[in-house]
Design a protein around this nucleic acid. Structure first.
Length: 703
DNA sequence: AAACTAAAGCTTTTT
DNA sequence: GCTTTAGTTT
């Protein structure tokens, strides 16, 4: 049989996976084993060689980024567009179904999506009303979320657990939260999945329609599915049973958000006759890195065993360095980055620093700044989470759905119009009494007579403003946002600093439909912003999943940090921490640096730290220890020393822009040697890195 | 409504 | 320790 062109460049296991058509399949895809390739090739193969309509394939991922990548690669492979196809995140695809069907659950089709901060503020207002300690909102929000992820409805919680002190409170808040969401015609992230499950379970004809439609189902990162997502997948797959899941139990690091590693471990039980394929050839890292990571992850019980291998060769040994404190650790990393950069093989964009806690980034950032290394922190504050951006989105949400009281509260006094706390609580009480939404009661106040005229005028100012804007609803979206700026005076109020972001909202809204734009704004995350510049990336171990980098640093490898203090007493949590470390290690293509400190300042106190227990699980032949040079200058035996390079005094210091008669403009990356024999290393965009002797090379300094 | 002070927090966070 | 936010003052 002639080989299909889509199988070219795939190894035998990958081919087998792509060629699997009917029935359930589990692909255990080790880190860097080309799982995206398998999914996209299979998608393309099904639709071009197997007579499967691409529109009858449901392909679900977790992140927008992964979904976009999948779309792009499928387009490349098939040469056809992917518009309208069912490729997307669990959440976006669910909301697409719900936009059509949700009326059957008593919501309106124009429901809005609450993000975490909307959810928090709703829960907080409920706590306030119930006179419960408001500071509990975080814990309650996360417990409500995990109940939903496990498909425990508020009704079910009440029915099953009546007589627990705290749980009673929790249940009370949960019930009310759910009522409020419905009143506001709003769904939170968890609802997007659970409502779809509910829809399918309560409406068999709807379920059947989608079961018929989705002949094939593919799921990426299957180890990260929670119970509700798993149930959704099973419901949809139970007719054709063509469910193809790809994942790696060793990379399951989101248990705290409800991910059920059992979904992947029990797949074969839940889907009888499921075929299993292991992808064990790694195309990313060196054998040293794989061996080290492998022997760490082997310590975990209950995993699907995998042994990654590569034909890339052993590569460099992993380095491990212990610093005295976190400043020194940062200095060591900065110095190593400099050294690697100056050697010319790696640019800043090839290097990534990973850590367990966000707080660790601060000292690391200082070190980067101190050494003049350009860096970016990935996943800090996303554009859509900035205050001014959220405000404008809230205006749009209210224009789109005036009953959305959470969004309304957000904008009712920004810019300030004299509707402060007292007015708001008064309105809230009235609204509750009359069973109206906030906006509804405001309209009532404007019409009615039982209120003082100053109160009424204040409210009227707002409602007529909003009515005007609602009247402009059908304007082009960016035009509508302009009208918001004009009519509310938001732009002037926000000030110069925020102007840039506010303008960016307009340009990102151009030509978009309101609903699409709002959905995107809620379902968008920091991850999706692209990094194009040549900068060192800093991020947490969680954030780095799915990425790779030629050079990787993992900082803070100490017991209490990695594994984290909170997980140190529970073995299943230690195992999750180990997976986290494993994920970090396997991001590295060529070079992996590990570091930790002897004493670390955490919160208010300085603590003595012990090296991470995971380090002892790395075979010594894969790893070598680096010691920082002691103050005396004496070298300890067998130590590889990272030396500080003396600062150059030559006019051609690092970073200076120069012109060469033949190669044109370039940037000095390093200069060294005696004053009369200075050599410089210059990076010319035209020819790359060149070593030059200042005496002979006719270099000209430019600015 | 801005500007201050006090206090409470504090893993990780795909959507 | 440091940041965020709630509460108080002007």
């Amino acid at each position: 049989m002639a080989k299909h062109s889509l199988l070219e460049g795939l190894n035998p296991q990958q081919q087998k996976a792509v060629l699997h058509i009917k029935g359930p399949m589990l692909v255990l895809a080790g880190a860097g084993s080309g799982k995206t390739k398998v999914i996209t090739h299979r998608f393309a193969y099904l639709s071009s060689a197997c007579d499967v309509q691409p529109s009858s394939i449901l392909a679900m991922t977790f992140t927008n980024k992964a979904a976009n990548e999948m779309r792009e690669r499928v387009e490349e492979l098939t040469g056809k567009g992917t518009r309208g196809l069912w490729i997307g995140t669990f959440h976006s695809l669910s909301s697409r179904i719900l936009r059509k069907e949700i009326e059957k659950l008593g919501y309106g089709r124009d429901f809005c999506i609450y993000d975490e901060s909307d959810t928090s503020s709703l829960i907080r207002s409920i706590l306030k009303e119930f006179r419960m300690h408001e500071a509990l909102y975080k814990g309650i929000a996360s417990r409500v979320s995990s109940l939903k992820a496990s498909l425990v409805s508020s009704e079910a919680l009440i029915a099953n657990e009546e007589s627990y002190g705290f749980d009673e409170k929790l249940a009370k808040v949960y019930v009310r939260y759910q009522e409020d969401l419905k009143k506001n015609n709003a769904l939170d992230f968890d609802d997007l999945i659970t409502c779809t499950v509910k829809l399918f379970e309560e409406h068999p004809t709807v379920l059947k329609k989608y079961q018929d439609e989705f002949e094939h189902i593919m799921i990426d990162e299957f180890q990260d599915t929670n119970l509700s997502q798993y149930r959704l997948s099973r419901l949809l797959a139970s007719r054709h049973k063509n469910i193809f899941v790809v994942g790696d139990d060793d990379q399951s690091i989101y248990k705290f958000r409800g991910a059920e590693i059992g979904n992947i471990l029990n797949f074969e039980k839940d889907f009888s006759k499921a075929k299993v394929i292991r992808l064990e050839q790694n195309y990313r890292s060196t054998q040293n890195i794989l061996d080290a990571a492998g022997s760490v992850i082997e310590q975990n019980e209950s995993r699907k065993s995998k042994k990654l291998w590569t034909d890339r060769g052993r590569g460099e040994k992993i380095s491990y360095c212990i610093a005295n404190n976190e400043q020194e650790e940062g200095g060591f990393i900065a110095q190593t980055i400099k050294d690697l950069y100056l050697k010319g093989k790696y640019s800043y964009g090839d290097m990534t620093i990973l850590y367990r806690l966000n707080q660790q980034s601060r000292v690391l950032e200082e070190s980067m700044r101190g050494s003049g290394i350009p860096y970016n922190v990935v996943g800090s504050i996303s554009f859509y989470r900035r205050k001014e951006v959220k405000d404008i989105i809230s205006y749009l949400k209210v224009i789109n759905n005036p009953n959305d009281s959470v969004s309304l509260k957000r904008i009712i006094n920004s810019p300030p119009r004299g509707i402060g706390k007292t007015t708001l609580t008064r309105l809230g009480n009235e609204a509750k009494k009359k069973e109206k939404s906030l906006f509804g009661i405001m309209k009532h106040v404007v019409k009615g007579n039982g209120y003082s005229s100053s109160f009424r005028d204040k409210i009227k100012g707002f409602t007529s403003l909003m009515d005007e804007l609602i009247g402009d609803k059908d304007a082009e979206l960016s035009e509508l946002i302009n009208l918001i700026y004009e009519k509310t005076g938001y732009l002037e109020w926000a000030g110069e600093e925020k102007r840039g972001n506010l303008m960016e909202i307009i340009s990102s809204a151009e030509g978009k439909a309101m609903e699409d734009f709002l959905d995107n704004a809620s379902l968008f995350s920091a991850h999706d912003e692209e990094e194009t510049k040549d900068t060192v990336s800093l991020m947490t171990l969680h954030t780095v999943k799915g990425l790779e980098s030629p050079v990787v640093f993992i900082a803070g490898l100490e017991d209490g940090l990695m594994p984290h203090f909170y997980s140190i007493n529970r073995d299943d949590e230690i195992q999750e921490e180990r997976r986290l470390f494993y994920v970090g290690m396997t991001r590295a293509r060529d070079i992996l640096f590990l570091s930790g400190v002897k004493r670390r300042k955490l919160y208010a106190s300085v603590q003595d730290q012990q090296p991470s227990r995971f380090l002892s699980e790395i075979p010594s032949e894969c790893c070598c220890y680096i010691e920082k040079r002691p103050r005396t200058g004496a070298l300890s035996k067998g130590a590889r020393v990272i030396q500080m390079r003396p600062r150059s005094t030559s006019p051609f210091a690092t970073g200076v822009r120069v012109r060469h008669p033949k190669w044109g403009e370039g940037v000095v990356r390093d200069s060294y040697g005696e004053t009369d024999d200075t050599k410089v290393m210059v990076n010319f965009p035209s020819v790359g890195i060149k070593r030059l002797s200042l005496k002979f090379a006719n270099l000209e300094k430019i600015r």
